[in-house]
Structures are given as C-alpha cells and as structure tokens.
Nucleic acid binder design. Structure first.
Length: 172
DNA sequence: GCCAACGTTGGC
DNA sequence: GCCAACGTTGGC
C-alpha cells in the first residue's frame, strides 16, 4: 500500500470539513508532479492531511476511496482528481516543527518541497508518523480540541461558498 | 512583511 | 529553446 500527504489550507478546506462531509472529491491540482502522484494512488491507500498556513501540522488520516479520473473542475488540460475519505483525526496534530526535528521525518517530501500539494510518504515514515501522533506524550494533550473553535466556525461558514479548493489550487 | 522556492509566461 | 521577469505559495 502506498501512502500520501495531501496539503490544504485549513481556511480553505479543513480536516474537520472532511469529517463532516465524510468524503470529498480532491480537485484542483494543477501541478504535474502532484498530478502524477494522484495518478499513482490506488483505492485503499492511506494518507494524511496537512494543514498549511496557520496550523502547519498533520491533522488527520485519510483514505483513497476512488482513483484518478478527469478533474471535473478543469476546463482544459490533462488533470485528474481522486476521492478521499476521512478516517480519523490524529490524537495530536504533528507539527511541522516536530517533523523537522525528526531525522527520518525531516526527509519527507512535504518538508523539503513544501509547495507540492500531493507528496508520497514511505511506509517507514507513515508508521513513524502514526506512532508519533499517538504516543502517551501526545495523549496528554488529547483533551485539547483538534481544531480551534474559530477554525470550526470558519469551516461551517465556508460551506455556503463553492469549494474554493479549486481556486486555491489553481496554480499549485 | 519578507524571503526562498519554484512554476509560468512572454520576448527574443 | 532560452531565460528574464513575474506570480504564487509557504514558512519564518
């Protein structure tokens, strides 16, 4: 099984939103390398959602529930989208700082190429991330909500808007 | 607010 | 086809 990290600004599309919707069409990827990764995904692959910007942390586990098909939001060009499903939030978000502090995880393509919106993850890295996000140390802060209340509000307020993921990703 | 990275565009 | 200019993104 292959593993992936999908990147999104939480203000645009958050893990909380994915949990609400349960599944979503991951559209708007307009970068060849990221697109090739989308093509390489397979149904059942597990991945992670990373919140860029304010959060800068891995926040949840996702699953690929449908492979690449032509991106319905692309007017022209050879672009694809996949379907993602929320699996579960990480007990504790894994911050970029913590990723960078780890000898193995600092090698993540997410860290090295922060602008790439879809990046592969090795099995070892994936296992390490899950472990780091569920250690007892992490659990001590488990009571804290995964997302700030303000973020949740934003997510709800955003629902009336069209999925701006596309807008946001137009150039990525 | 600034800078680095990097993709895209346009002139040649 | 090259490359300078420019725009976008993400992190600090």
């Amino acid at each position: 099984m292959a593993h992936w990290i999908f990147k999104s600004e939480p203000q645009v599309y958050s893990f909380a939103q994915l949990v609400e919707e349960r599944r979503t069409e991951w559209t708007g990827i307009r970068n060849f390398e990221a697109r090739n990764s989308l093509r390489a995904t397979a149904v059942g692959d597990l991945g992670l959602l990373y919140h860029s910007g304010e959060d800068k942390a891995l926040v949840g586990i996702v699953k690929v529930t449908r492979g690449a098909q032509p991106d319905p939001t692309a007017n022209e060009g050879d672009w694809v989208s996949i379907e993602l499903e929320a699996v579960k939030a990480l007990d504790a978000p894994l911050s970029l700082a913590r990723l960078k502090a780890d000898e193995t995880l600092k090698e993540l393509m997410l860290v090295k190429r922060s602008r790439l919106s879809v990046t592969p993850v090795t099995p070892a890295q994936f296992a390490l991330i899950l472990k780091a996000a569920t250690t007892k140390q992490s659990r001590s802060t488990t009571k804290a909500p995964l997302l700030k209340p303000s973020l949740k509000k934003q997510a709800v307020a955003r629902q009336s808007k069209p999925r701006s993921l596309k807008r946001k990703r137009k150039t990525t």
